[in-house]
Design a protein around this nucleic acid. Structure first.
Lengths: 69, 69
DNA sequence: CATTATATACTGTTTTAGCAGTAAAAATAT
DNA sequence: ATATTTTTACTGCTAAAACAGTATATAATG
């Protein structure tokens, strides 16, 4: 389940939006290092920073349990 | 979109699993304070800690862009 | 090729999340 | 009601995420 490479997924969407890591970082209001880390699948990043990146790239997050699905 | 109250969602599933915050924290391998913070929608928690909680509760995370959807 | 832009990597520093411990408030049970 | 459990809240302390700056490597462009 969801063994998606989130880093690659984000990088792909960033490229698609024509943004550099630095531009994405600025738009998301975070440092370039963090964007780099996120694309490298560093999971110890702060949730809000990840959300900021996802928001800029128009990526949605959904939480679903097998029950409610 | 997704203005879901993730904290309440998690709390609900925790209750449903018959777990206390402390038990969930131990199962997830994190501190009780962090579980409390997560249920209070503190978004500055580390992503891996949130994932650990979601994993214990069998909650899946999905990332989707309007494009690929 | 050379040149520019971008990505990766590595610093030192600052900020803060995470933590256990404790205590008090709220909920649950007896 | 009064125990008991659970949750909420508040501490310092420590570890590490975040950051800008810099440097090198890689990729793209002329």
């Amino acid at each position: 389940m969801n063994d998606l490479d989130l880093g690659a997924f984000i990088k792909d969407h960033r490229k698609n939006a024509g943004l550099t890591q630095l531009e994405l970082a600025d738009l998301a209001g975070i440092g370039k290092t963090t964007v780099f880390d996120i694309e490298k699948n560093k999971e110890t990043v702060r949730f809000n920073n990840l959300l900021a990146v996802l928001h800029v790239l128009n990526i949605n997050v959904e939480f679903k349990s097998p029950l409610t699905k």
